[in-house]
Design a protein around this nucleic acid. Sequence first.
DNA 1: GGGTTGCTCAAAATAAAATTCGGTTTTGTT
DNA 2: AACAAAACCGAATTTTATTTTGAGCAACCC
Lengths: 158, 158
Amino acid sequence: MQLDKINRKILSILQQDARITNQDLAERVNLSPSSCLNRVRKLEQQGLIGPYLGVVDLATLCRSVTVIATVSLKDQSTDAFRAFQQAAQDIPEVVECYIVSGTFDIFLRIVAPDMNRYNEINDRLLDLQPGKVNISSHVVLSTGKPFRGYPLDQLIDG
Amino acid sequence: MQLDKINRKILSILQQDARITNQDLAERVNLSPSSCLNRVRKLEQQGLIGPYLGVVDLATLCRSVTVIATVSLKDQSTDAFRAFQQAAQDIPEVVECYIVSGTFDIFLRIVAPDMNRYNEINDRLLDLQPGKVNISSHVVLSTGKPFRGYPLDQLIDG
DNA sequence: GGGTTGCTCAAAATAAAATTCGGTTTTGTT
DNA sequence: AACAAAACCGAATTTTATTTTGAGCAACCC
């Protein structure tokens, strides 16, 4: 039964509306509240869903600069990657980091209060492996499509 | 009063734990439940917070391919940008899109069930403005740091 | 000062949700 | 077909959340 139609629907709904009540969720998947809660708990225990995040409107909230940075490492050793990755995790302004294959190695999204602060972060990243890190910065002008969850319908089997 | 210390704390907490109960939230910000709920409702009405998303563990859930794509447009008109942006919004597998300044124009995150499907999406994007779109694809090997909210402490005034 | 506004709080009333449980149905297996 | 396991439902219970109410307090403006 592990990932039947109902569980997929639960995940799909919960992904887009994390604050829905169990009762409403139960109604939408045609289940009794008790059964529905059982399923949600199991899905959470299995780590298939959670944590639950509130989307904050950063632009309205405060002045900030978002930068997409592509990184190339001269040293392609796993140690070099691990060190860089650790730094990304430790710097709160680095909000996202992917290791990729292609014309660069690492992709970062960085959010800073202003350009001065971004520059500091940039320097800090460059200093990790002096002369062996190449960072290309791309200031975000506008958000064409904010992340709002994955298209589970397209992704899971059907 | 619009964005005092308490509201910032509410946003910060709600950003990272969207399913917290109002009572627990009230306790954490040292407010009565009613006052706390009032603030949350206002923040929501103002669009400063919401929607609330459940984070799904895509890797465990199903087989999928995530690609970071950088796009350059030969035609730098606003119309060309608008058309591309619209396409990004219409394709569910394109889960994120930023317009940037730098060595490329647009940044995309695309999640597909497999490479064949990704290739189709890639073609579709290329065909938008035949011969005038340059896409560089970077397959995600691993996630160094998943997005878990913004560092509001660093960003708002302090 | 007096009035207004907009916040706060606490308590009570209301509403809703989570949990539990026995009995039933479905599903999967032999 | 028979059995066992798992999942379901519905109702009762307990717990928790939400709204409402009334009153206090501070800031601001006339």
